[in-house]
Amino acid sequence: MIPAPIPPNEAQRLRALRELLILDTPPEARFDRITDFAASEFGVAIALVSLVDEERQWFKARTGTEACDTARDISICGHAIMGSEVFVVEDAARDPRFADNPLVTGDPFIRFYAGAPLILPDGMAVGTLCVIDTEPRIFSRIDQAILSALRDVAVEELLRQARES
């Protein structure tokens, strides 16, 4: 397993995340509907609005799981925030980066992952909108475009929520 890397701008990234004033806040319908929609759109078991904090990834919205957070070093979202494009793992069990990851070998038995980084206007990637399934699958260019469009709505809601806080 390759632990989730730490981006070079980690200090600024964490500051931007904290300034959203969203960590550990209660669930909100405006985020829940995004994960519900994504799970339905792609027919996947799990969809998350995941925020990658210093030691954990915390889920502002979750569909298909009761987990509220996981350790950052085993998070696939931690890998996804290293780039700006949709991060796709078609079969985690066959990917050397994740094959022995406890989230793959154990509950929730992730095989497929696609995460669109939540990137703020200042360029900081604070988390992902991701979809997860227990079967491997192909994620087409159009699928990635759809997930990116939903991610853009999620970013707008993060910024709106921060203004309202």
């Binding site: 509907r33 995004i34 475009a145 759809i146 990116s148 469009a149 853009d152 709505v153």
Partner: peptide
């Protein structure tokens, strides 16, 4: 449905 509407608009233009 704003999610459906926005995603259709964005992706239709992209592709």
């Amino acid at each position: 449905d704003v999610l459906l509407r926005r995603a259709v608009k964005q992706v239709a233009g992209e592709i």
